[in-house]
Design a protein around this nucleic acid. Sequence first.
DNA 1: ATATTGCGCTAAAACGATATAGCAAAAAAA
DNA 2: TTTTTTTGCTATATCGTTTTAGCGCAATAT
Lengths: 340, 340
Amino acid sequence: MTDRKTKKVSLKDIARQAGVSTSLTSFALNGKGKEHRISEETVRHIIQIAKDLNYKPNIAAKNLRSGKSGVIGVVIPDISNIFFAQIVRSMEDVAARLGYTVFFGSSDEYAQKLQDLVESLINRGVDGFIIAPCERSEKFIHQLVNSNIPIVQFDRPYKNIESSYVTLNNHKAAYLATSHLIEAGFCRIGMVAYDISLSHMQERIEGYKAAMEDHGLKSEICIGFAKSDNLRKSTAKVIAKMKEKGIDALFFATNTISVAGLYAISEQKIAIPRELGLVGFDGSDAFELCSIPLSYIKQPVEKLSKKAVEILVNMLEEENRAIQCVQIDGELIVNASSSC
Amino acid sequence: MTDRKTKKVSLKDIARQAGVSTSLTSFALNGKGKEHRISEETVRHIIQIAKDLNYKPNIAAKNLRSGKSGVIGVVIPDISNIFFAQIVRSMEDVAARLGYTVFFGSSDEYAQKLQDLVESLINRGVDGFIIAPCERSEKFIHQLVNSNIPIVQFDRPYKNIESSYVTLNNHKAAYLATSHLIEAGFCRIGMVAYDISLSHMQERIEGYKAAMEDHGLKSEICIGFAKSDNLRKSTAKVIAKMKEKGIDALFFATNTISVAGLYAISEQKIAIPRELGLVGFDGSDAFELCSIPLSYIKQPVEKLSKKAVEILVNMLEEENRAIQCVQIDGELIVNASSSC
DNA sequence: ATATTGCGCTAAAACGATATAGCAAAAAAA
DNA sequence: TTTTTTTGCTATATCGTTTTAGCGCAATAT
């Protein structure tokens, strides 16, 4: 640990001590010895001195000179959602391994906040973005893509925008969850979703519908919508209404809905799975702690974040403008809430 | 949104267009007009042009020149712990309002990882740190403080190190939780804690003990330790053993222990609060979803993070070397798990 | 002997902002 | 009138890197 007060060691210091120019020093330390035909001995010498002096390059100078920052901006809806917390966590690891750092911020599902965040990150000089869009942000994302800032859409991409994206195969996951309920003997299966147009939600809804249709249950399709600004109450209302209609199982479209649903069910004292079969989405401590553990679709957090970071870094380093669209399969975790 | 390809507007561009020098431009845009006796008209003129050209200062250049980065490094144990997720979230907001950005990383409670993180953040040029230390990191934190890098310890400070810190008043909180159980009619109250020496844990233990003593229950003091690397199993074992001993209530020392405890209790089919009264720590979705909602000590997340950021920024900007030690009170949330 | 090539290195110009020293003209004081 | 002060501005060095252009010398080719 060096004292903050004693000035930091610079390239110049090393150069002086080694009796060479700063250029040579820079080349040597960046592994460009051969490329610039520096004698191996000189390179070794320089590296040794750098080590001795505990040289740490000044990143601001590097950034200024190179016009790059080595920082990836990540914009997610909410870091206090465990799913995104894990995603960010994982992205950090992957990015670090590739020599990048992650700046992140939460949009709270507000288009304006997303825009502010992105702009402030641009000012901070991030090299590229991984963004989970929110409602009403399509235009802005579009502009962003058009302005040639490297960007990977995540989790709920606008698929008609020409950009790379990484997302769960939501259709398949929802199909899987619904089919599982059907195979477990339920037939009047409802879905609780958000009334939003983002792709992940629409595809989960479509996946549910498709599964119902494919099993001859088209007429039983029944979707209720929870309001995110009054989540618990609205979810409770939806569930009560569905129960009245004779629904015998529910598929929750997200982990927030799942938690709210579990809460409502415990309040309404509905017996799981006898009176109502359940499948949720993503994970949460709460899923296992409710009296009957919840079956759910598990998203492959590491795979998703790794892919997103890799694609972005590839764009940054290879100037690879090829668009990559990746959909990764989810896994169904079967617990007691869905086995009759 | 500016096109990434079209080069960015620099001070020079503005200066040229305004027909003045870059120095003047810099002063004008930094509000140092008066200080450098620039005519008000010129200042207005320059500012107008900067606006027209949508000028955004290059942060790398600023950093290089000033030796500061406007970035605060935050090191916490684990971002996927909801408590720390909320903390980070809140710190970001506060920091943004003060003109700073937050870089954060998770130590996973490993001293080595904490050290690596801090060093990498130093290389990235952060101006100061907010750190939640972990076991075996005392020496390193001590070095850090000695090397004059501005730092605020957080959540579990080493209090004998001469540095500022912000933490919950853990003693008081534990005392409160324990007293509450006693007043609710429980008397054989056990505590489940981690066997670590960090201050927050020691003080929670001391607070529990003090409450028991003050209520004449010294002989009933009983502390069981959960292992963090095998949390669920070890917690279950501890609880089972305590139950055998005739314990009638439990105080969980952290939210991770609380979740594990709830899990064990639901597995062991113990009736809450009839057979066992419960109070936990921090919040979690799970606390409300278990069949009987858990009473718990709620930490004032906003206050804690705000204070920490403010103290650090004060150190950075005022060169204020005065050490500030802040302890903030927690709040007891009473739910069904502790009312006989 | 002269021209060419390769080798190992250096000098110096960027990158964009800030801050110090100082200059010319106008205003005030002598 | 001459000197001093004030006003409004400029030129330039600097922060620590990276990178381009090119220099002098020796070895090889002609």
